[in-house]
């Protein structure tokens, strides 16, 4: 009796829930930041773009258990493509973003076709090697990519033909924020769908899923392509808002830093990806005065302590806190 009542009240609660609440939260938080830090819009945009990139990593790592160290391959490819597309083909930002997404998915499909057949060490090396290969290629093709100097000098047309990408980065910020909210909505739908649940099944036990007759390889490919296209879009956004694409967008350091952000926030929760990114980027920004070596030392220590003491990320602190409050209430 009692139990069914609880269930019923939960069900009622669920109906009362505001639709799109998380996305509204993201947008509101963005608008609040816009008014509090009007002179730091470039940095805020960078956070938003990174959050999208880390979200794509969370789909692979947190939800499907694919431990990749080469997600920057898709980010960088998307960034270079968006830049080159704006320079030579068409300056419209949304079409450019679409192209970046397609390129990200394409690279994921091509590299995934052989990588996803391997496991463990071989898989990890292949993910690094593919990203390093693209890095070496971009470094070599200086005529196209600008090499060390980076790719610059491309102009992006106004969004919808109305909103120009101004010097202060207002358009860039709201444009990226909207894309992030949209991606978050799609991700939320995805991980709740039967398809997303099957992804969690793959994370828990691939052999069992195979034994149940599930097309494991095909499923992994689709997820890898979705995450690849998201990373490509993030790269494209970065190119369009910063207007420069550097080699570091394909680097191992970028893949590793994205991992740190995800681990910091906690894998397997979409909020974790956002919170980890914000914390990491803010700390990085404040530590800009430090020399790169000290910053690297900091990331290293952060990684080691997180793995040893907070394997579920900072969100674990939140869980511990909530559990503590619950215990407190019960004892009252």
């Amino acid at each position: 009796m009692f139990e069914s009542k609880v269930v019923a009240s939960n069900a009622v609660k669920r109906h009362v829930k505001v639709p799109l609440l998380p996305e509204i939260c993201i947008l509101v938080a963005g608008v609040v930041c816009f008014y509090i830090f009007p002179s730091n819009l470039g940095f805020l945009t960078e956070i938003v773009v990174m959050a999208l990139f880390v979200l794509s990593l969370d789909l692979l790592l947190g939800y499907t258990g694919i431990a990749t160290l080469g997600q920057a391959a898709m980010f960088g490819a998307g960034a270079y493509c968006a830049g080159l597309f704006a320079m030579y083909v068409h300056p419209d930002p949304l079409i450019g973003l679409l192209v970046a997404g397609i390129i990200g998915a394409g690279i994921a499909l091509v590299s995934g076709s052989f990588m996803l057949r391997t496991h463990g060490l071989s898989f990890i090396i292949l993910t690094i090697a593919v990203a390093e290969l693209l890095f070496a290629a971009a470094n070599q093709a200086q005529d196209i990519t600008g090499g060390d100097n980076g790719l610059y000098g491309f102009a992006v047309a106004p969004l919808f033909g109305i909103f120009e990408f101004d010097f202060y980065g207002r358009t860039g910020f709201f444009y990226s924020l909207s894309i992030l909210a949209l991606a978050f909505l799609l991700m939320r739908q995805l991980v709740r769908s039967p398809f997303g649940l099957a992804a969690k099944g793959l994370r828990e036990d691939q052999e069992r899923m195979r034994a149940l007759g599930y097309p494991v390889y095909r499923h992994l490919m689709i997820i890898y392509a979705i995450a690849g296209s998201m990373a490509g879009v993030a790269g494209g956004l970065s190119a369009q808002t910063v207007q420069v694409v550097g080699l570091q967008s394909l680097s191992f350091t970028l893949s590793a830093e994205a991992l740190v952000m995800l681990i910091l926030g906690g894998t397997g929760r979409l909020y974790g990806a956002l919170i980890g990114t914000v914390i990491f980027m803010v700390v990085h920004h404040m530590a800009a005065a430090l020399d790169p070596s000290t910053w690297m030392l900091f990331i290293g220590l952060l990684l080691v302590t997180t793995v040893l003491f907070l394997p579920k990320g900072l969100m674990q602190l939140f869980d511990i806190f909530m559990a503590w409050i619950k215990v407190g209430r019960r004892s009252e």
């Binding site: 990890i124 070596s293 290293g300």
Partner: peptide, 16 residues
């Protein structure tokens, strides 16, 4: 993943 993260951390500390 945990092993990769820990050893990347060690690598970064050593480089720094």
């Amino acid at each position: 993943l945990d092993q990769v993260l820990l050893t990347i951390g060690v690598t970064f500390i050593a480089i720094a």
